[in-house]
């Protein structure tokens, strides 16, 4: 499999606090990778290391299957933290600086890009007078300016209004599908990410605790019958022997999750009771995405 980004146990220490703790991330080509974590979990620091703005204390980074980072980073577009802009210049002048810095010969590229992100007609306006959304657009314009193959976006929808969020979402989908740009996008707004992401990485206290794709996510979030019983082993036997249910799991003591035959719940309950299992509680649980992520991220504790 082609990986656009592969990191091997990278670690960053500020003081004696491990901000990023041996993260091994794998971003496949063509993916939209949702990088999820609370504020301060280490998302930004991780992205800064990938983008070459900070050096990791330990570990290896591989971009496009190559260790020549300086060279391969030419193919990355980044928007990390706030957009890096000169506030005393207009959007056009800002892009002109980028154009010159990277020796892009197409002079009309600046205007084209402004149009692409919807910033035309701001010729006279300095960036310091821009709204948050406009600044964010300019940031995205800068990140896209050199036709990247891999986009790293840190909270790109922060501070945008709902319409802006939809616009950015559609823009990203379009870039991913039409130009086949791989995207690494961080957010703490889970609902927004789940609409576009194909892969997920969950970071908690600097450590990447899980990596999975949408298929696995669906698997984990699918509807199930949750049954609380006094004897889960007996219950498991009954399910297999009498009801021929194989698709279930036991997430904890006295709890069963059944994924099959959900249209015949009475049957399941009846059979269990007849065979001497006491049911304390039984309900149909469709753990939604948000709930699942919250469970992964926090465990409720505010640490």
């Amino acid at each position: 499999m082609d990986y656009v980004l592969k990191t091997e146990n990278i670690t960053k220490v500020y003081g004696n606090h491990k901000v990023v703790d041996s993260v091994s991330m794998h971003v496949k080509k063509g993916a939209i990778y949702g990088f999820i974590g609370k504020n301060g979990a280490g998302k930004t620091t991780f992205m800064r290391m990938v983008a070459g703005l900070a050096a990791p204390e330990e570990g290896e980074i591989e971009l496009f299957g190559s260790g020549e980072l300086e060279k391969q980073r030419l193919r990355i577009g980044t928007l990390i933290e706030n957009p890096g802009v000169y506030v005393n210049m207009t959007a056009k002048e800002n892009l002109e600086v980028i154009r010159r810095n990277f020796g892009i010969a197409e002079k009309q590229a600046v205007d084209d890009m402004l149009e692409f992100v919807g910033l035309t007609g701001t010729e006279k306006k300095k960036v310091k007078n821009f709204s948050m959304g406009m600044k964010q657009r300019l940031g995205i314009a800068i990140s896209l300016f050199r036709n990247p193959d891999f986009l790293i976006l840190d909270e790109p929808i922060n501070g945008l209004d709902p319409e802006g969020i939809i616009e950015i979402r559609e823009l990203l989908l379009k870039l991913n599908q039409e130009k086949r740009i791989t995207i690494l996008i961080s957010s703490h707004i889970l609902g927004e990410l789940s609409k576009i992401a194909t892969h997920y990485g969950i970071i908690k206290n600097g450590a990447l605790i899980e990596e999975f794709d949408t298929g696995e996510l669906d698997e984990r979030c699918r509807r199930c019958q949750k049954i609380f019983v006094d004897n889960e082993n007996l219950a498991a036997n009954i399910l297999e022997e009498k009801l021929h249910i194989n698709s279930f799991d036991i997430p904890g003591k006295g709890v069963l999750r059944i994924f099959e035959q959900l249209d015949d719940l009475e049957q399941i309950n009846r059979e269990l009771i007849i065979n001497g299992v006491n049911i304390k509680e039984s309900y149909l649980a469709g753990q939604n995405l948000e709930g699942y992520f919250m469970e992964l991220l926090g465990g409720g504790a505010n640490d």
């Binding site: 496009f64 060279k71 030419l74 193919r75 990277f102 020796g103 892009i104 010969a105 050199r146 036709n147 990247p148 193959d149 130009k179 086949r180 740009i181």
Partner: peptide
Amino acid sequence: LMEKEDTNYQLSSF
């Protein structure tokens, strides 16, 4: 670089 990789990259000028 462009020959080796599947890329959107375009030529720039020195």
